[in-house]
């Protein structure tokens, strides 16, 4: 058997904010962006089994194997000392799944959810696994499938999963090329290609953007973003997410959260640029 394995950081069995209805959300390990404000940097790097965290775990919940760290979930207190110890800020607390094993886990909560969303990290780094997983979901249930992606992988990365994918939620970190690269460490071009690709397929469920001081929070920033989206399709749904310093690391932990009034201004700005459906988080 050559089923690809998926490396999963964690699974939420209910979420009201990751697509339509109530959804299970699978957070994949690994990311190709290095966002300055990343709220879950432990999902970026892969564990290389260096073993440093094994020594510092106060619960002795970690064991060093030949080429991986074994994690005893039952005694783990999730104190995150392992993540703090890791030179890469990675996490040894991940699970590898075959597509079947992941579906088996999700199928138990099927009656309570509308669908499954995969997020991360960046799920497009594990497209072969996801294509098989989504196929299982669609062949065995009426659940919908959604990928929450930064789009950087480009359209070709998503083609294998496309028959089994209902929706994509694209995180447009910033619509200004230079600022995008500064914010994420990666260029913008392929992100926009992916967005146009999903839109052309009729599968772009939503574009979302975190309103970050200095990058996406000015009226000019929002006008640029909204005009870009409206140029693709005025029906594109844009959701603005308020940056919150809580959970952010490094200098971004000192950044200010936009006010309600400013978030409302940006919503109105986006609407004024021709987008029909714009909303914001609380």
């Amino acid at each position: 058997m050559n089923d690809p394995l998926g490396l999963v950081n964690h699974i939420l069995n209910k979420s009201f904010v990751d697509g339509p209805g109530n959804r299970a959300v699978i957070f994949m390990q690994g990311c190709n962006f290095r966002c300055l404000y990343c709220h879950n940097p432990y999902t970026i790097q892969y564990c290389n089994a260096c073993g440093l965290c094994v020594e510092t775990c106060p619960q002795h919940a970690l064991t060093l194997g030949k080429d991986k760290i074994f994690w005893n979930e039952d005694i783990c207190l999730e104190c995150d000392e392992c993540i703090r110890t890791c030179p890469s800020s990675s996490s040894p607390r991940t699970h590898s799944y075959t597509p079947e094993a992941l579906w088996e886990q999700i199928s138990h909560i099927g009656p309570f959810i509308t669908g499954v969303s995969v997020s991360g990290g960046e799920p497009s780094l594990q497209v072969a696994f996801l294509a098989q997983f989504f196929q299982l979901v669609k062949e065995n249930s009426t659940l919908t499938t959604l990928i929450e992606t930064n789009g950087f992988a480009g359209p070709q990365a998503y083609t294998a999963m496309l028959p089994w994918l209902d929706m994509a939620m694209l995180d447009l970190k910033c619509s200004h090329p230079r600022k995008h690269e500064k914010l994420t460490g990666q260029p913008l071009d392929s992100v926009l290609e992916s967005m146009r690709f999903f839109a052309a397929q009729g599968k772009l469920q939503q574009v979302q953007q975190v309103i970050v001081p200095g990058f996406t929070d000015s009226v000019e920033d929002m006008q640029r973003t909204a005009k870009l989206l409206a140029g693709v399709d005025p029906e594109i749904r844009l959701r603005l997410l308020r940056f919150r310093p809580h959970g952010a690391n490094g200098p971004s932990a000192e950044w200010q959260s936009p006010t309600d009034e400013h978030m409302d201004t940006l919503v109105e700005t986006a609407r004024g640029c021709g987008l029909k459906e714009v909303e914001r988080s609380l």
Partner: peptide, 10 residues
């Protein structure tokens, strides 16, 4: 309150 459809799922 922002996603009553999710409550309906439950």
């Amino acid at each position: 309150a922002q996603n009553p459809a999710a409550v309906l799922d439950i």
